[in-house]
Write a protein that binds this DNA or RNA. Structure first.
Lengths: 226, 226
DNA sequence: AGACATCGGAGGTCTGACCATTAGCCTTGA
DNA sequence: TCAAGGCTAATGGTCAGACCTCCGATGTCT
């Protein structure tokens, strides 16, 4: 089904962009609406596109995060996989931090600093803190300027989030998290890739140890999907 | 589209199982063939199912080794992503080799050695060599005993394979590849995780340099899918 | 026994109609 | 004037049946 390629080539897709309606788009591509719809279903399954009945079809993000779904299968089957997940993050995230230190634009550095500040202000609210946490990691991966790494990391982060939902966040760790994040960002801003990598490792190891010490509290069997 | 769920619930899927033909299946589910096909496309996009024109539709392994497809989109859009891919492999594969050195069972070590031998025998046939190459990497990831890492690496390897198809393999590099592989496997067998990591890095860097020196020879715009 | 021709059955596509849902406009009433 | 509710056009969702293309197995010929 190279009509997928056609779709991509034709409508130079930008995130958020709305696609032409199916009738027109099918005409423009020289295929039937039925075939077009099959292609759209595939894109939708990959989370590249979102279809809203009665409204339209929109480009979501070009980075398919869908990897998370099948990975979640592993988690469901094997509970010990949580530690496997951390092991992988201990591999990829320090590397991403190092790359970010080398490649981040000044705008990206600013965004990182802003995120840290916002995190400090949200210190009281555990839920918000979690959100800032994942956004910070995301910003770092963005600053690494590697689309593949970013896609992989996004999947892992999604997994990590689904784990977080199962665990009760211990608020007393908030100051620790923030100070570790600060270390990472400072190293990146200083363009010190080695320090950034080290700081990220420290952060992940500490979080993992916390998890080991206070294992999941929620019901592990009923993790909702969609 | 919960018909997806219907599909899964109805035909209790076992890997390799062949689905009823679309006409019958649509009837049995009480939907039209068009709708059924859209659902199948979604499943196919997630690599849960494989459709073969003129033959039938089969349940692919539920083990999610797959997921390469969405990443391939990135490659399709951004050709420079090939180097991003190598960058990520330079991060994950040495780590996997190190883990393998620590955790491989004796059976897995034997399998690694066998693969090396088989690779040497296939030295003449470039195509076979490629196959042994990817199998060796796969074995290493297996020996790392980390399901998440394995799934991620499998996706990346799938990507790497699709790149290989676009490039003409330079046979004169066969001896180099084999000797580098041997170094990696020897380090793993010696339980020397650091050496394994280093050897793997050397291998990947060399391959990447080759790629840079002799870029894709095939027509880059018409890479067939499926 | 092997190579080739044939044919049934599978997925791939097309057409054109109708149904279901949404967003936005427009009327209505306070 | 403004808010609540209903109408309407646009859009995706589904359907039906036809035809094309491709694969695999069967059977035939050499």
């Amino acid at each position: 089904m190279n009509l997928l390629r056609k779709l991509i080539a034709q409508g130079d897709l930008r995130p958020g962009q709305r696609l032409p309606n199916e009738h027109d788009l099918a005409n423009r591509l020289g295929i039937s609406r039925a075939s077009l719809r099959e292609g759209i279903r595939a894109l939708a399954a990959m989370n590249i596109v979102v279809v809203r009945h009665g409204d339209g079809t929109y480009v979501s993000s070009l980075e398919p995060e869908l990897l998370a779904e099948p990975l979640q299968l592993i988690l469901a089957i094997e509970d010990s996989a949580v530690f496997s997940l951390f092991e992988v993050r201990r591999i990829t995230e320090p590397a991403a931090a190092a790359l970010a230190a080398e490649r981040a634009t000044t705008e990206e550095l600013d965004a990182l600093r802003d995120e840290i500040k916002a995190g400090i202000e949200a210190q009281g609210d555990a839920l918000k803190l979690v959100e800032h946490d994942s956004r910070l990691h995301q910003l770092i991966h963005l600053a690494a300027h590697n689309p593949i790494l970013r896609s992989v990391s996004a999947s892992l982060a999604g997994l990590a989030n689904s784990v977080r939902k199962r665990t009760v966040r211990l608020p007393r760790n908030a100051p620790l998290t923030i100070s570790e994040h600060t270390d990472v960002v400072e190293a990146i801003c200083a363009r010190d890739s080695e320090a950034a990598s080290r700081a990220m490792t420290v952060h992940l190891v500490r979080v993992e140890n916390d998890l080991r010490a206070y294992p999941a509290a929620g019901s592990p069997n009923e993790a909702e999907t969609e």
